[in-house]
Amino acid sequence: MAGFASLLVASAGLRVASLNLCTDELLLALAEPGQIVSVTHLAQQPSEYADWKQARRYPKNDGSLLSVVGQHPELVLTMGGGARDQAHIARKLGIRVIDLPYPQAMSDMEAAIAKVAAAVGHPAKGQRLNARIEALKRTRPATLPDTIWLGGGGRSVASTGLAAEWMALAGFRQRPLVGDRVTLEQLLVSPPTILLRSDYRAGQYSGEQRWMMHPLAKGTNKSRTIPTDGRAWTCMGPPMIDEVNGLRRFAP
């Protein structure tokens, strides 16, 4: 027991960098401020991360191992694989790398939270965060109306998996869509009960945002349009807990 306590104390003093926006979210939620040596530049952009002011308290990196070597991290967090060369270099430099898979389900997200919390020496923080998710599960609304999550250009989400699970916790049921996309014609002919409209990069000049400006993409008189903070849906990590609590105010 004493050895485990010593290991936690040692981990709690680790210098940690994150090379991915999704691991930025985990690191900022689970580490102590003195441990964080770097987060990605994306976390510091208001258009990408809701708590960008917190992220700007720390040095930034460009998502590469080389950009953080000079900051002397002992642990580097990243996600999604494709970084074998970086992992090899990190081992040569004595830097531990945790490369998390992109979560496909809520259980994956809970596992990632627990793993990062343990790695940075704060398992209790991970337990508290996962307890908040469990509380959402226990209080999930009983009625889940037909819903389409709508992003730029008609992008949507799968009817199963992590996004759909977060939606269900908020009180919405994602409609199955071919290719996880919806057309303006579908919104006209078969409108959902709820149009959960992402505001990610709203107002930005792009083809996707021009599509979102079409009247049908804003909802019809047969749908109720509810806005959601699209930034939280990029990684669907810890920020989704507050987003779900906020969306529950609009659920039937």
Score class of each variant (00 low, 15 high):
Leu14Gly: 03
Asp242Gln: 13
Thr78Pro: 00
Arg231Lys: 13
Gly3Phe: 08
Gln86His: 11
Met79Gly: 02
Met213Leu: 13
Thr234Lys: 09
Leu196Met: 09
Lys60Thr: 13
Ala83His: 11
Lys125Trp: 10
Gln44His: 08
Pro103Ile: 06
Leu177Val: 11
Thr234Trp: 01
Leu129Arg: 03
Glu25Trp: 04
Ser64Ala: 10
Gln174Arg: 08
Ala2Ser: 14
Asn221Thr: 14
Arg249Val: 14
Ser159Val: 07
Val16Ala: 03
Leu93Arg: 10
Leu28Gly: 03
Ile89Leu: 15
Leu129Asp: 02
Asn221Ile: 12
Asp199Leu: 12
Gly237Phe: 05
Asp24Trp: 02
Met212Gly: 02
Lys92His: 12
Thr78Arg: 11
Arg173Ile: 00
Leu30Glu: 07
Arg181His: 14
Arg128Phe: 03
Val97Ser: 01
Tyr102Ile: 15
Arg84Trp: 08
Ile226Ser: 01
Phe4His: 14
Glu134Ser: 13
Pro46Ile: 11
Tyr102Gly: 09
Gly171Lys: 01
Leu187Asp: 04
Gly63His: 06
Ala163Thr: 07
Leu196Tyr: 00
His41Met: 13
Asp51Gly: 05
Leu75Arg: 01
Thr225Leu: 05
Ala119Ser: 12
Leu26Val: 11
Ala31Val: 08
Leu77Trp: 01
Ala10Arg: 14
Ala202Tyr: 03
Pro238Gly: 09
Thr160Trp: 04
Pro141His: 05
Leu14His: 11
Leu136Phe: 04
Pro192Phe: 04
His122Gln: 15
Gly82Ser: 10
Val37Asn: 03
Met1Thr: 12
Ala119Asp: 06
Val182Asp: 02
Ile36Ser: 02
Met1Val: 12
Ala163Cys: 07
Ser206His: 09
Trp166Arg: 06
Arg224Ser: 07
Asn20Leu: 03
Val9Asn: 11
Leu169Gly: 00
Pro59Phe: 02
Val182Ser: 02
Ser223Asn: 06
Ser67Asn: 07
Thr183His: 06
Trp149Asp: 00
Arg91His: 14
Ala131Leu: 08
Arg155Ile: 12
Leu75Thr: 08
Arg155Gln: 15
Arg210Trp: 10
Ile148Trp: 01
Ser107Arg: 15
Gln86Phe: 07
Arg248Asn: 10
Ala50Cys: 08
Gly179Ala: 13
Ala202Ser: 13
Pro141Trp: 05
Leu187Ser: 04
Gln186Gly: 11
Gly126Lys: 00
Leu216His: 01
Leu247Gly: 00
Ile36Phe: 02
Ile95Trp: 00
